[in-house]
Amino acid sequence: MLMPKKVKFRKQQRGRMSGKAWTGSSLAFGDYGLKVTECGWITDRQIEASRVAMTRFVKRGGKVWIRVFPDKPVTKKPAETRMGKGKGAPDHWVAVVKPGRILFEMEGVPVAQAAEAMRLAAHKLSLRTAFISRESAGGHA
């Protein structure tokens, strides 16, 4: 599972997710990508499940890039615990994403195969996504 090697602080506050993803919103490595269309948290387990789903589907032949990293710790209190007594223990890691952010990129496979792989990956996520390709994006090459 993805997680940072070193952190400055063990616990973080939740924060806000306003605006759009102005960085990381265009294809940088591959020909196809999965773009998130709403804001939210993507957990380390979701990223891993998506990666496994994509690589299993394309088997040999495709290269996958993961464009997000879960660097935000999420804490959780144990079950049946009274409120108070401080913040809970770190439980898992999440990546904060805003609308427009590219989650995964792919290269070396036909467009239909890439779209199907991304569809399978999108099913592992809790956010709405869209499949994009370099032709449809029309951005900087």
Partner: peptide, 21 residues
């Protein structure tokens, strides 16, 4: 070639918490 390790092994290989600076 991606060698898929069982979930239990993978969990054991990764540390529970990162180092705090």
């Amino acid at each position: 070639e991606v060698v898929e390790t069982p979930a239990a092994e993978a969990a054991a290989a990764t540390p529970a918490e990162p180092e705090v600076i």
